[in-house]
């Protein structure tokens, strides 16, 4: 194959570098295969499987699992619930974060920095801790916002946590824990706007509000799109909040409330792994669509950093 010694050397070196590259990424590629791609492929196979003697018989079920899952009497309800939640949480989250970041960015100084830190800290509250805090905060008997809740006519926690108010409560909870991180990211994006542009706007007579609306907001638009897509993809996956509020018995709410809860219920409540796979595959596809949209529609992430 190799004709001359002179030609062989660069080729051999080229091949050695290819091998080195593969060795560097090999452990990661294995994890990616096992825990990034594998679960999706396995869920796909499982969604067409029947279960005899506890082990899956792949591709024996046809579409039966999909029919079971998607025609379940709770299927439409759980999607209606998250749709309502998204309808409230997306605009509240994005508008809230953008307005706060712009307000903070109007003036530099220690006051703004202190405020930013206070908004950021609740990000440390996640999962069960967030639900715990919510149960306390929404209880008019002990809440730090007691006087406000009592003024609104609420007396016990089940007056506040009601089935109809859940989309709004989950929005407040998500905003409380998640806004600070986004505010910091938007603040970073605002900081990267060139000073010359802002100076020019000021000289042309823009006041602080006008420069926020006409100059800064258009320049951070890619981040708005990015946050919208990620918040959508993340909020669709709601699980811990409805699961725990119901389980803690603080207030009666219908179960399952979200699609992921229904998938969980199929696997653990009914032992129907095939139907559970059919639901989780749908949720995974929604996440995948969001990811592809971020990569296609925004320029936040770079594939070719090395060439840049």
């Amino acid at each position: 194959m190799v004709k001359t010694v002179a030609a062989a050397r660069p080729r051999a070196r080229g091949r050695a570098r290819i091998q080195a590259g593969h060795l560097f990424v090999l452990p990661y590629a294995l994890l990616l295969l096992a825990f990034g791609i594998g679960p999706g492929i396995y869920a796909f196979c499982l969604s067409f499987a029947t279960f005899a003697e506890g082990r899956p018989q792949f591709f024996q079920a046809g579409l039966a699992n999909y029919v079971t899952a998607y025609t379940d009497f709770r299927f439409a309800g759980v999607f209606r619930n998250v749709a309502l939640f998204l309808l409230i949480s997306l605009p509240v989250g994005v508008i809230g974060v953008v307005v706060i970041a712009l307000l903070l960015h109007m003036r530099e100084g220690s006051f703004g920095t202190a405020m930013r830190t206070i908004y950021f800290l609740p990000g440390a509250v996640a999962g069960p801790t967030a639900v715990l805090l919510a149960i306390f905060v929404f209880d008019p008997n002990i809440s730090p916002f007691q006087s406000l809740l009592q003024a609104m006519g609420y007396e016990v926690v089940s007056d506040v946590i009601r089935p109809r108010s859940l989309p709004l409560l989950f929005t407040l909870l998500g905003f409380f824990a998640g806004a600070g991180g986004w505010i910091a990211i938007f603040y970073g994006a605002l900081n990267s706007i060139s000073q010359e542009v802002l100076e020019a706007a000021t000289m042309d007579g823009c006041n602080a509000w006008q420069s926020a609306w006409f100059i800064k907001l258009p320049l951070i638009r890619p981040y708005v799109a990015y946050m919208l897509i990620l918040t959508f993809a993340g909020n669709v996956q709601l699980f811990a909040e409805p699961q725990l509020i119901a389980a803690a018995g603080a207030a009666p709410i219908p179960q399952p409330w979200s699609p992921n809860q229904l998938g969980y219920e199929f696997a653990f409540g009914l032992g129907n792994f095939g139907a559970s796979a059919a639901i989780s595959l749908l949720m995974l596809l929604i996440g995948l669509a969001g990811a592809l949209l971020v990569l296609r529609a925004t320029t936040i992430f770079r594939v070719d950093a090395a060439e840049a």
């Binding site: 825990f35 990034g36 679960p39 999706g40 990620l230 993809a233 993340g234 669709v236 996956q237 699980f239 992921n260 989780s280 949720m283 995974l284 929604i286 996440g287 995948l288 969001g290 990811a291 971020v294 990569l295």
Partner: peptide
Amino acid sequence: MIIPSSAL
């Protein structure tokens, strides 16, 4: 990295 980990 963009797909929410809870989806998996």
